[in-house]
């Protein structure tokens, strides 16, 4: 468990205790809101997680490494961005992968695109996003984020 997760859980516990001391009735209402929030989305999230697990088993990071190995920077950037778009990998997996790719000759520019799209653009989480915010919002946000990821990686290429 990383530090922010611990901080988050402690925050929840502290707020809960404080809230109960101040107003038990209100707190119960808040907890009801919380359970409703969870009930409304838990099936979707578990399904999506299972899909990500499936995807990463069928297309393991090693395969990505092989695909990215021989291509030019531009193509590799696009492939990285596309791969990052489809999947969602936790940072502690993504960064070791990116760094091993760099060791094997991948360009930093493509890695910046990879990391940014990986975390910000989510094809696979889009159904959840649509559930909360609708199709238009989800489409606009993801397309803009994808473009921004490419722009960020180009900008980084100029500096690094």
């Amino acid at each position: 468990m990383d530090i922010t997760t611990i901080a988050l859980i402690s925050l929840a516990v502290i707020l809960l205790v404080w809230s109960f001391k101040k107003d038990g009735k209100k707190t119960k209402k808040g907890l009801k809101v919380a359970t409703n929030m969870g009930k409304g989305i838990v099936v979707e999230i578990v399904s999506i997680l299972a899909l990500i697990g499936l995807f990463l088993t069928l297309v393991p990071p090693d395969t990505i490494r092989i695909i990215l190995g021989d291509t030019s920077v531009h193509i590799a950037t696009l492939i990285s961005a596309a791969f990052g778009t489809v999947t969602l990998i936790p940072a502690f997996v993504a960064f070791p992968l990116a760094s091993s790719l760099v060791d094997q000759g991948a360009h930093l520019v493509s890695m910046a695109a990879f990391i940014t799209t990986l975390t910000m653009v989510g094809f696979i989480t889009a159904p959840i996003e649509i559930e909360y915010f609708g199709k238009r919002f989800t489409l606009v946000r993801n397309v803009l984020s994808f473009l921004a990821a490419i722009a960020i990686s180009i900008g980084m290429g100029l500096i690094l």
Binding site: A12, G30, A34
Partner: peptide, 16 residues
């Protein structure tokens, strides 16, 4: 580890 805590915090934000 994360979601229950997020929901609790947001539930409390909702009422307070």
């Amino acid at each position: 580890q994360i979601l229950p805590a997020v929901f609790v915090v947001m539930g409390l934000v909702e009422v307070w």
